[in-house]
Design a protein around this nucleic acid. Sequence first.
RNA 1: GCCCGGGUGGCGGAACGGAUUACGCGUCGGCCUUAGGAGCCGAUGGGGCGCAAGUCCCGUGUGGGUUCGAGUCCCACCCCGGGCACCA
Length: 808
Amino acid sequence: MTIEKERTERYDPATIEPKWQEEWVRSGLHDTLDTADKPNFYFLTMFPYPSGEIHVGHWYAFAPPDCAARFMRMNGHNVLFPMGFDAFGINAENAAIDRKIHPAVWTEKNMAHMRDQFRRMGTAIDWRREVITCYPEYYRWNQWMFLKLYEKGLAYRGEAPVNWCPRDETVLANEQVIGGRCERCDTPVEKRQMTQWFYRITKYADELLRFEGLDWPERVRVLQTNWIGRSEGAEITFPVEGHPGADIKFFTTRPDTIYGATFMVLAPEHPLVERITTPAQREQVRKYVDHARNMAEIERTTAEREKTGIFTGAYAKNVFTGERVPIWIADYVLLAYGTGAIMAVPAHDERDFAFAKKFGLEIREVISEDGKEHGALDAAYVGEGGMVRSGPFTGTRSEVGKKAIADEARKRGIGGPSVTYRLRDWLISRQRYWGTPIPIVHCPTDGAVPVPYDQLPVELPRDVEFTGRGGSPLAHVPAFVNTTCPKCGKPARRDTDTMDTFVDSSWYMYRYVDPKIDTAFMNAAIGKKWLPVHQYTGGVEHAILHLLYMRFMAKALRDLGELWFDEPVTRFRYQGTIVFKGRKMSKSRGNVQTPDEYVKRYGADTLRLFMMFMGPWVDGADWDASGIEGVHRFLRRVWDMASADRQPAGPREAELDRKVQRAIKRVTEDVRTYSFNTAVAAMMELSNALQKGAGPSRDEGIATIVLLLAPFAPHMTDELWHKRGGQGSVHQQRWPTYDELIAAPAELTIVVQVNGKLRDRIVAPAGSSEDALRSAALASPKVRAALAGASPKKVIVVADRLVSIVTR
RNA sequence: GCCCGGGUGGCGGAACGGAUUACGCGUCGGCCUUAGGAGCCGAUGGGGCGCAAGUCCCGUGUGGGUUCGAGUCCCACCCCGGGCACCA
C-alpha cells in the first residue's frame, strides 16, 4: 500500500498547474525569436474585447488554437502566437456612464483580469508582444493611416443616408446593422442624412471577391461574396419631359426588358424629386417624402409590405420605345442602391408588377418563355426567354438581348454596360468618446484640414463628462476642441468624432511583430519574416465585419506602398459559437457560464481537453459540462500510468505497437484539420489499449501518449515529462512520427457477404490478393451453407475489407 | 422568398460507397469499501424466437432511385440552425 502510494501520487492539477505557469514565464519558454533555425509560422487568434465577463466561450476560442499552435511548435516551426486587446469600444463608455468609472480604468482592470485568465488557461502566448489598441502608441497609427488614405482619396468626408442608433447615440456602419437593428444593443436604427467620414472600400469590391490562393472556409467566402453583392447589368438614362438636363439615370440587371418599361420610380429622397414634381402633385409628394424619411429603417424594409407610392406628375421618355412614361416615387426604391431610380418593368419584375397592379399602370409583356406573345399576365415572368414587342430586338433571346441593349445604349450615348454592388463605403466616424480621435481640424476658411503628421497622435483628453446624452462627448471639452488651423493659424475646431473600433482591428496583426516601434505602424524588417499571417482563427460572427475590413486595409496599405502582399491571412479557420440553453451568453441575460468552477474542480488541462472533446470545433455547442468527468478520468488514468514504475522487461506486443503508431497518425492528422474531438478520442483509445498492455510496448506507448497529449494538456504533460526524467520542457520535444508500415495491421478480418447479407468473417493477412480472398471466402463452410448449392454469379472483392458473393 | 449548413442510440458525437454507432456521458450489473457522489471490471439501438450457444426482423428526418452493397451518391419533399432579404 505504501509502495503504491509512493509510486503514484495523486493527479493534482491545483498544484502542478500554477507551478508550470510560473516556470514557463521564468524560463521564457513562450518568448519567440524573430529568427531561428526553423521556419517561422505566424499563428494568430482574434484578440478579445476586454469586456470583463469571462465565459466558457473565451476558453473555446483560445484553448483549441493554443493546442494547434503548440502542435506547430513541436512540429519544427518557430511559432509566433501573440495576444492583445481590442480595447476601445462602447461598453467601456457605457460603464463610465452607469458606474462613474473612467473607461481607461475600467479597461485596464478588465485586461488584467483577462491576462490572468489566459495564464490560468495555460496558453503559450508571447506576452512581450502584447498590443493594446487604446494606447496612444497604437492609435496614433490609426490616425497616420487615416491621413495617408485621405491623401490617396481612400478616405473622404461625405453626406449620405447613414444608420443612426438612437440608444448608443452614434452612427453605425452597414455591417453593424443586423436586421435593421443595432448590432450592439438591438435597438431599431434610423436613417439620417449626415456628413461623415468614409473609407472607400467599394474601390476594392472586385478584388475582395477574389479568394484565389486563400485557404478560407467556403462559408466565409460565400458570406463575403453575398455581402459585396455584385450585379452586372446596364446603366441607362432617360430624359425628363420639360426638364432639359434633369435626366434620370438608372441601373438595371435586365436591360433586355427595356421595351416593357412602362413607368419609372424614384426613391423618395432622390434629388430630382423636388425639381420635376408638378405643382398639382407637390403637396401629396411632399407628404409622402416626409413620411418615408421619418419611417424607421426596419419598418420601411419589412418584406411583403404593401406597395405605396405617389405620381410626381412628370414624365420621362423611354428612348427605346419612344413613349412617355409616368415618373412615380415609392419607398421600395432605395436611394442607397444603384442610382436610387429604376425603370419599372411590371411584366418581368415582381415588385413592379405589384406596384402596377395597385396603381393601374400598364403591364406589357416583352419576354416570353416560348417566344410567343400572350395576353394579360397573372404574375411577373422573371425568367429568360424570347424577346417580344421589342422593336428591332424582337425574336432575340433575352440572354443575348441584355448585352445588345446595353451596347445600343452606349452607341446612343445614353449609358452602357455597368456593374453595381450592394457593398457601401465603410462609414468610420462615431459620435462617441472611447475611440481614436479623427485627426482633422475644421477651419472656417480652409475647411477640413489634416493634422500634420508631426502632431500625431491627437490624444484623447482624459477629463470628459459622461452623460450619455448630447452627441460626441469630445465636443464638450473645450481644451480639446479649440485649436488653430494648421494651414492659416486662425482659431479652428477639432473633429470631435472618433473612429469605429473595427479600424483598430483592421491592421493589428502588423503591430504584433514589434509593438514597440515608434517610427512606423510596423517594423517592416521583422514583418518580412512573419507576414502574411499563416493561420488565423476566430469566431464566425466576424466573417463579414472584421475579416472584410482587414482584407480591405491590407489592400489599401499595399497601394500606399506599405505592404508587399495582397491578402493579410493565408489560412483562416473559425470556431462555432458556444450558447447556453440555446441562447447567446451575456451579462444582460444573466446566463454567463464561467470557467472558474471547472478549473478549480478539475484543472485547466481538463477544461481545455473538454473544450476540444465536446464536438467539432466549427460547430460550437450548447454548453453542457456533464461530460467533463470523462475527460478528467482519462487524464487521471494517463497520469497514473505515466507516473507508475516502468516495466520494460518482457516481450513486445505487436498489436499494441500498431495501436501506438495508429494513434500518432490519427492525432497528427486530426490536429492538422482541427478535428480536435477525434484527436482526443484517438488518445483515449490508445490509453485504453495501453492499460491492458504490458512490457516495453506499453512503456514506449506511455512515453508517446505524454508527447501526443502535450499540446492539449500542457501542464500535466510537462510534469510527467520531468517525473519521467526528461530534460528541458515536453513542449520543446519533437512530435512523434509514425511508420505507415507498422501502423497497418498484419492480419485483418474480412467480411463475407452472400447476396448482401453478412454470412462469415475470415481472417487473412493484410494485402491478400483478390484470388486468395475469393477462394478463402468460397471455401468457408458457412458461406457454402448460405449458398445452398447456388452458383456465384458475381464475386466482388474489396481489398482488406470484404468479399461480396452474388447469386442473383 | 433566395443562399449556405445540418437531421445518426436516452445525450454529445464517430464513420475512404463496405461489419451502423468509434470515443465519451448517462443507465444497469458486479468488484473494492465502514461508506461512496472515489476507483476498477463488464453490459448497454429497438423488437421477436430460444434454457442456452444463438438466430431472425427493423433501424441514420420522409418517399423514391442508382448499386452486389447507401448515413454516405441522385431526385422530390419535411423539419432545424445561420446568413441575406422590396438590392432593380
